Simulated assay, not measured.
Amino acid sequence: MASSGKDGRIDYIEFNVTDIARARSFYGNTFGWSFTDYGADYCEFSDGNLKGGFANAGDVKPGGGPLVIFFADDLADTLKRVEKAGGKIVKPIFNFPGGRRFHFTDLEGYELAVWSDR
């Protein structure tokens, strides 16, 4: 498999929000971001350099915090490496429009994700 040049890099950030329209308004008016809607529960944003998303994915944790998403050329291999290093898989590989991903917690308990378009 040819390398994408993005393997292992932070590629996307998701904010879990209670109100996508309110988040769009705040970040659009404050920072001039552009948006693409993917249904009622998801909106992608672009700051002109990095893309991310607003997800209505359940309860927002006190203190908030975005979901940092890494890219992987080989998703299954990356999952194995996460587990071998002591990470805990909290959402196994699943499909979504545009690719597949999984979520894990690192040794400090931070939830992170890895995605691939392959």
Rank of each mutant, 00 (worst) to 15 (best):
M1T: 15
M1S: 15
M1F: 12
M1V: 15
S3G: 13
S3D: 13
S3R: 15
S3F: 11
S3I: 11
G5F: 12
G5M: 12
D7V: 03
D7R: 08
G8A: 06
R9Q: 06
I10L: 11
D11H: 13
D11W: 11
D11R: 11
I13P: 04
E14P: 05
E14K: 02
F15Q: 00
F15L: 15
T18H: 09
T18Y: 10
D19E: 13
A21H: 09
A21I: 05
R22H: 13
R22L: 13
R22E: 14
R22A: 15
A23I: 03
R24Y: 09
R24V: 13
R24E: 15
R24T: 07
S25N: 07
S25F: 08
F26P: 02
F26R: 01
F26N: 06
Y27I: 07
Y27V: 04
Y27S: 05
Y27G: 03
G28S: 08
N29Y: 10
G32K: 07
W33I: 00
W33L: 07
S34M: 11
G39M: 01
A40Q: 11
D41C: 10
C43L: 11
E44N: 12
F45T: 02
F45D: 00
S46V: 09
S46Q: 09
D47A: 08
G48F: 02
N49D: 08
N49I: 12
L50I: 09
L50K: 06
K51E: 13
G52M: 02
G52Q: 05
G52N: 01
G53W: 02
G53Q: 05
F54M: 04
F54L: 00
A55Y: 06
A55T: 12
G58C: 04
G58R: 03
G58M: 10
D59G: 11
V60G: 08
K61C: 09
K61H: 08
P62T: 13
G63N: 06
G63D: 04
G65D: 10
V68G: 07
V68F: 07
I69P: 06
F71P: 00
A72Q: 00
A72M: 04
A72Y: 00
D73Q: 08
D73A: 06
D74R: 01
D74A: 01
D74W: 00
D74S: 03
A76I: 11
A76M: 10
D77P: 05
D77G: 14
R81Y: 12
R81L: 13
V82N: 10
V82H: 03
K84R: 15
A85L: 08
A85K: 09
G86F: 05
G87F: 02
G87C: 05
K88G: 05
K88P: 05
K88V: 15
I89F: 08
I89M: 09
V90W: 00
V90G: 02
V90I: 01
K91L: 13
K91P: 08
P92E: 13
I93S: 09
F94C: 09
F96N: 10
P97D: 15
G98H: 12
G98I: 14
R100V: 11
R100W: 14
R101Q: 12
H103N: 14
T105I: 14
T105Q: 10
T105P: 03
D106K: 07
E111W: 03
L112E: 01
A113S: 15
A113V: 04
V114P: 03
V114L: 01
S116V: 01
S116D: 04
D117L: 02
R118E: 15
